[in-house]
Design a protein around this nucleic acid. Structure first.
Lengths: 149, 149
DNA sequence: TGCGATTCTATCGTCTGCGATATAATAATA
DNA sequence: TATTATTATATCGCAGACGATAGAATCGCA
């Protein structure tokens, strides 16, 4: 009987967990200057691409539950980054829209990914390898986020 | 001026973040049967390999801050999975040890990684590709978790 | 039309996760 | 030895993250 599989180093889940947290930590000082948290930054990225979305659409896009997204959006509303408004067509829906402030943050945020990429890519991993990594991760995310499973 | 880099789909951070959460969700139903949360499971994996560790050693291994680990360990102590005891040699240190209950959970947990792997690997990603993914992630984790940076 | 099923958002409780800070013990050094 | 610096853990406050659940609006179908 072996417990090899139960070792931290032999599991995919842990490097994934650790890498995710570590990269979030790298973002943190840059985002702090803009008064944002990492999940708030994710919401803005989604809204920058599509200014008007329902709560449900945002949560689907970020693969988060609505009970995570609702308080997140309320905090962002109180920061005046977005507005929240009940839909007239369907009173169950809440439309989320970027505020002028939220829209303008895009310019300030634009330089962040490049800064982070320059910070670590060439030293440990090539651009090609990052692309390969992303492709695999997206495949996994795509599969695991399918409803039916 | 382009905002291509700011798109969710063009960033490494998001698939990492999403994949990490999604895999944790997969673990959840299995861990629930054992009365564990995912971070508690990580702590146990570390202790199964090394029965006696300080709080600091656990936090280093899991790449978490001690202000995350301390309450986590206290909850695990109240669940009687571990014991916590001040070191005699160095009164600043707290020694964390597996309880009999914590030790025995290893047998129940042993089947979990295999179940999850069978659940998704062959359908989306080959064993070889997973190994490649892990190698890249570990390289990133290794680099980002170096103190000096 | 009417009513049960579904959809959409929100609330609650619990467990992370982390920055800032506190406190005690130990180490280093003047 | 006395003082300062460092180390180890803990506390506090806040922001996620999610399971369970609630409540209102809409849909689907007899």
């Amino acid at each position: 009987m072996t417990y090899e599989q139960l070792k931290l180093e032999n599991q995919l889940c842990f490097p994934l967990y650790a890498a995710s947290h570590l990269i979030t930590r790298r973002y943190q000082p840059h985002l702090e200057k803009l008064g944002l948290t990492y999940p708030q930054y994710l919401v803005l990225m989604v809204l920058w691409e599509n200014n008007e979305m329902t709560v449900n659409e945002v949560s689907k896009k970020l693969i988060l539950n609505t009970n995570t997204v609702t308080p997140l959006l309320k905090r962002m509303e109180s920061l005046e980054l977005i507005s929240r408004q009940r839909s007239g067509q369907d009173e169950r829906k809440v439309i989320v829209r970027l505020s002028e402030k939220g829209r303008q943050l895009r310019e300030d945020a634009a330089s962040i990914p490049g800064k982070l990429a320059r910070g670590f890519i060439p030293e440990v991993i090539s651009v090609k390898e990052v692309a390969d990594l992303m492709e695999k991760l997206k495949r996994i995310v795509g599969f695991l986020s399918e409803e039916k499973i």
